[in-house]
Amino acid sequence: MKRSIIAICGFAVILGVILGCLLYVPAAVREEEKKFVCIINPGQTYWAKVRTGIEKASGELGVYTKYCTFERFRLEEQMKLLDAARYMDIDGIITLGEPQSAELNDKIRQIEKEGIPVVLIDTDAEESGRTCYIGSDNYQAGWIAAEKMAEAAGGKVRTAVFTSKLAYANQQERVNGFCDAIATMEHAEVAEIFESDADKIKIQQHLKELIANDQGINAIFCTETASTLQVGLFFENNKNSGEKILIGFDDEDTVLDFVRRGIYTATIIQESSRMGYEAVRFLKEYQPGQKQEPQIYTKVSCLTADEAEEYLKKQGRN
């Protein structure tokens, strides 16, 4: 009888342990940590990589970065999110600048005044009084593209530039870099600069006109992803449009595929995940009053068909 009771007690203990294991859910503990808000574009390979960089840095550096996106690139929405961020107890904001927008610059200035450091990525806006800019040197990017183009064309270049909107600072800088580089070369000129507003139909129509009119253009430089994709598609579908040297921008899967198949001679790639990572690290190490480097550039390079495979492998993409 005694043994039975001992057995039952033992059984009860075992069941209790099992029950505890099954029912136990550890409560989350929110430690005191630095909190940053990141307000950037959604989706796309480029921004997704920025986000990967931010998340990687947050995990490694032990900070919490709240990630907010706006549906389209709309200043209004960005302003709202910045206001909401201001209302939180945060230690820093990561967002992208817009030098043309006085409203955004004012808002950033206001935030800085309230003691919250703002780091701009991708696009700089020096007038906003931001703490730091981290991103590609867009002028340099344009310059590299021009050099690559001249090299591929064998010196004689008559080129068209496709950009989304010159009002956007980063586009402007890329175009400037490109144009300045072309200007230094002999037998090279920029035939036209086309602003597409990232509109697919506009791009396609303009390309048709361009081919039809045949102004002796032998090369095209696209300064952003949307143009790169549309131009690539056009030349894929219209093989008889004559040999053109195409230089694209960014490393969307389709773009890389175009490069691989030789439709594009090369594409300019930015280290977008590096941008995100560096932004978080900058904010984590930021001390108010300490003198900071106002601009940190991440690497910009040119990717050709030969390097595409290796690049994809390195990125873990296929």
Binding site: S4, I8, L15
Partner: peptide, 16 residues
């Protein structure tokens, strides 16, 4: 003993 064992086990299982 057997009775206690069986009853105890059943009760415990029900309880848990």
């Amino acid at each position: 003993g057997y009775f206690i064992l069986v009853t105890g086990f059943s009760l415990l299982v029900c309880l848990f």
